[in-house]
């Protein structure tokens, strides 16, 4: 069984739950930016939790199935079509040999996930099939997909069948304006008193450069850092620190101009002050933000962050329980 890529879309890559455990060596998590949509897609086609899917960003691909398959599309509001006929999102459907899967405009959300029963069967690298394109590692020969690529598919589980779906009210929607919860720190204290306020007051716009490495925001007021004599090893700009490890989800503001939230393909360390970290529960929502969408940052404490994580897990569990 194989799938041929007729048109790759803008940036379509093989992704799974990710490659944790190597960030200290400079190899990032990678994996589907929207993990909720990834796991949902795999459940719909009867795949194991770690199976690899396709992540399509902003513009869907055109795929040709060389054999019959059970498919599910989750994530962004981009209607899948088989040979031009509409298929539901968030519900498994069957394709025949020779069928073509295409996508309508991405009306909301930024990433569609295409799971195929059996999973995309590229070789695992360091325990994951995820693509880390910056490092030319994993996925389909270490890069995003190109026209003419032929993707191997594994063996479908016996439980794979069309028509599986979740309760509709448990499927996420993707507003064009949202709030992102932030735990301030490690270097939040380095902002001036005024900037520590304006960061949370302003509405920020997703920049067109936002990608799997980092989500860049602009159009808020410039952030100023407190004056100090820069320590040895730190760059001269007050937004610089002595090099340190960057957590996943951390927010850096080079030159105080544009906050960048590090996502799953981020570099693991560097010399920008991290003013806070987006809570893990909101990283999937960032993944679904299109350029020009709007965000406000809301401060939470550790209890608030853990509560958000617990709520996320409980919502996911309810969705899994509603699978029919």
């Amino acid at each position: 069984m194989a799938i041929e890529v007729i048109k790759p879309g803008l940036a379509t890559s093989v992704q799974d739950a990710g490659r944790p455990g190597y960030y200290h060596l400079g190899i990032p998590l990678s994996g589907a930016l929207d993990q909720y949509a990834l796991h949902a897609a795999n459940l719909l086609v009867g795949n194991e939790e770690g199976a690899a899917v396709l992540e399509a960003t902003l513009l869907g691909p055109e795929l040709l199935f060389r054999a019959p398959a059970i498919v599910a599309v989750t994530g962004a509001e981009a209607t899948p079509k088989v040979n031009g006929e509409t298929r539901p999102r968030n519900e498994s459907f069957a394709v025949r040999a020779g069928d073509r899967l295409t996508f309508d405009y991405m009306k909301a959300g930024a990433r569609s996930y295409v799971a195929v029963a059996g999973g995309i069967d590229v070789p695992p690298i360091l325990g994951s099939r995820s693509t880390y394109a910056l490092g030319a590692l994993g996925g389909f020969v270490g890069r995003k997909l190109a026209a003419g690529d032929v993707l191997p598919v594994g063996s479908a589980a016996a439980s794979a069948r069309p028509g599986r779906a979740f309760a509709a009210d448990l499927v996420p929607t993707y507003p064009k304006s949202l709030e992102l919860r932030v735990l301030p720190g490690l270097y939040f204290h380095r902002l001036t008193e005024e900037s520590a306020k304006t960061f949370f007051e302003d509405t920020w716009t997703v920049a067109p450069e936002a990608d799997r490495i980092g989500y860049r925001y602009r159009k808020g007021r410039t952030l100023k850092f407190r004056e100090r004599k820069q320590p040895f090893g730190a760059g001269s700009d007050p937004s610089n620190i002595v090099d340190a490890g960057y957590p996943y989800g951390s927010i850096q503001v080079p030159g105080g101009l544009e906050p960048i939230i590090l996502h799953r393909d981020a570099v693991s360390g560097g010399g920008y002050a991290m003013i806070g970290t987006v809570v893990s529960a909101d990283m999937d929502r960032i993944a679904q933000m299109q350029p020009n969408n709007l965000a406000r940052f809301v401060a939470v404490d550790m209890d608030g962050a853990l509560k958000a994580r617990a709520d996320y897990r409980s919502r996911f569990a309810r969705m899994v329980a509603s699978l029919r």
Binding site: L10, L58, L59, Y105, M106, P208, Q290, P291, N292
Partner: peptide, 8 residues
């Protein structure tokens, strides 16, 4: 003529 994707 419709924009195929978001951006500038």
């Amino acid at each position: 003529v419709l924009s195929p994707l978001p951006g500038i």
